[in-house]
Design a protein around this nucleic acid. Structure first.
Length: 121
DNA sequence: GGTTTGACCATAA
DNA sequence: CTTATGGCCAAAC
């Protein structure tokens, strides 16, 4: 008997990428939203992990960072997530602005206009 | 195989 | 508003 069914399985990363791809141009979603769409809101961290793997030159194979709009994924607070590098957040913000996503004065995305509801798998 | 780290989230103070 | 804490789980060391 299995103790608890793992939310994250062999295809977890792929699921994450697939969800991210469903976010259309000009919309954003949060890590928690994607995690919830995948089955549990508790795996939000892994969503971030999966996306970080995209930018590792070795780890992305069929899922290139160009195929996946990772910049449309932000934290639930509406701010951009970057643990260490501010440069990445800047790049991300630039990308979003280019798509027409609006930030308020506090640097937070206006979810009212741009939040996307992730479809369940 | 324990410890640390990580692009998180919700809640509490 | 900020800071702290607990939860959750995989990868790297």
């Amino acid at each position: 008997m299995i103790k608890s069914e793992k939310i994250v399985g062999p295809g977890f990363y792929e699921k994450v990428y697939r969800c991210v791809k469903t976010v259309p141009y000009g919309y954003v979603a949060t890590y928690g939203d994607i995690a919830c769409a995948l089955g549990s809101s508790r795996v939000a961290r892994h969503v971030g992990w999966a996306l970080s793997a995209l930018q590792s030159p070795e780890k992305n194979t069929e899922f290139n960072n160009e195929n996946i709009p990772w910049h449309r994924i932000v934290s639930s607070t509406g701010k951009l997530s970057n643990r260490k590098d501010n440069l990445r957040a800047n790049f991300q913000k630039n990308k979003l602005l280019k798509e027409g996503v609006v930030f308020d004065d506090n640097g937070k995305i206006k979810f009212d206009q741009h939040r996307w509801h992730i479809a369940m798998l």
